[in-house]
Amino acid sequence: MPPVNDQFERTIVAPAICAGVGVHTGRRVRLAIRPAAPGAGITFVRTDVRDRDNRIPVSGEAVVDARLNTMIENAAGVRLSTIEHLMAAFAALGVSNAVVEVDGPELPILDGSALPFVQLLDRAGFRGQDAFQRVIEILEPIRVEEGDKSAALLPCDRYEMRFEIDFPTPVIGNQVVDFVVDERTFRHEIMAARTFGFAHEVEALRQAGLARGGSLENAVVIDGDVILNPGGLRMEREFVRHKALDAIGDLYVLGAPLLGRYEGVKAGHALNNQLVRALLANPQAWRIVTRAPELALAC
Results as ranks from 00 to 15, higher is better:
Gly264Glu: 00
Gln207Trp: 12
Ile109Val: 15
Val177Gly: 00
Asp157Thr: 10
Leu93Ile: 07
Pro230Ser: 09
Arg30Gly: 09
Ala256Tyr: 04
Val180Thr: 15
Val220Asp: 00
Ile109Gly: 00
Arg30Phe: 11
Leu271Ile: 11
Asp65Lys: 10
Gln7Cys: 15
Ala75Val: 14
Met87Arg: 02
Arg55Ala: 10
Ala292Thr: 13
Val177Leu: 05
Leu254His: 05
Cys156Val: 10
Phe8Glu: 06
Ile56Gln: 00
Glu164Thr: 15
Leu251Gln: 01
Thr70Lys: 03
Val171Arg: 04
Phe198Cys: 08
Pro35Gly: 06
Asn5Thr: 12
Pro155Asp: 09
Gly41His: 03
Arg127Glu: 13
Ala219Met: 06
His188Ser: 15
Gly264Pro: 00
Val253Thr: 03
Ala124Trp: 00
Val221Glu: 06
Gly264Lys: 02
His188Asn: 15
Glu9Ile: 05
Val21Pro: 01
Glu238Cys: 09
Leu271Ser: 01
Gly60Met: 03
Arg241Leu: 08
Glu201Val: 13
Lys243Phe: 07
Met71Asn: 07
Ile42Glu: 04
Ala16Leu: 06
Glu203His: 10
Leu210Ala: 09
Ala267Thr: 07
Glu9Val: 04
Glu140Val: 13
Val135Thr: 09
Glu217Gly: 11
Ala76Val: 11
Ala267Pro: 02
Arg184Pro: 07
Gly255Ile: 03
Gly128Trp: 11
Phe186Trp: 02
Asn282Met: 13
Leu154Gln: 09
Val4Glu: 01
Ala267Tyr: 00
Ser59Asp: 11
Phe186Met: 03
Val176Asp: 12
Tyr159Gly: 01
Arg127His: 12
Glu236Pro: 08
Glu294Arg: 13
Ile12Thr: 03
Ala219Asp: 05
Gly268Trp: 01
Val99Met: 06
Gly232Val: 08
Asp6Ala: 12
Val49Lys: 02
Gln274Pro: 08
Phe179Trp: 06
Ala296Glu: 15
Glu146Leu: 14
Asp148Gly: 07
Asn282Pro: 12
Val64Leu: 11
Glu183Phe: 08
Asn282Tyr: 14
Ala98Val: 01
Leu251Tyr: 02
Thr47Tyr: 02
Gly173Ala: 13
Phe186Arg: 01
Val118Leu: 01
Asn74Thr: 08
Ala211Tyr: 04
Ala199Thr: 12
Ala204Leu: 14
Arg79Asn: 12
Leu115His: 07
Ser150His: 06
Val289Ile: 15
Ile42Trp: 01
Ala281Leu: 13
Gly60Ala: 05
Pro15Asn: 10
Leu216Cys: 09
Pro168Phe: 07
Ala14Pro: 09
His200Thr: 14
Phe239Thr: 01
Arg162Pro: 03
Val226Cys: 12
Ile72Gly: 00
Ala192Gly: 08
Val253His: 00
Asp178Ala: 12
Glu145Gly: 13
Ala32Asp: 13
Lys149Ala: 11
Ala14Cys: 14
Asp6Phe: 10
Ile12Met: 03
Phe239Asp: 00
Gly213Leu: 03
Glu238Arg: 04
Thr185Cys: 08
Arg206Tyr: 06
Gly213Arg: 03
Arg55Gln: 13
Ile142Phe: 04
Pro257Gln: 07
Ile138Gly: 00
Leu139Gln: 07
Met235Pro: 07
Leu210Ser: 04
Leu259Cys: 12
Gly213Ser: 10
Gly77Glu: 13
Asn5Ser: 15
Lys243His: 09
Ala66Phe: 06
Glu238Asn: 09
Pro105Gln: 12
Ala278Asp: 07
Ala270Ser: 15
Arg143Thr: 15
Val171Cys: 11
Ala211Ile: 04
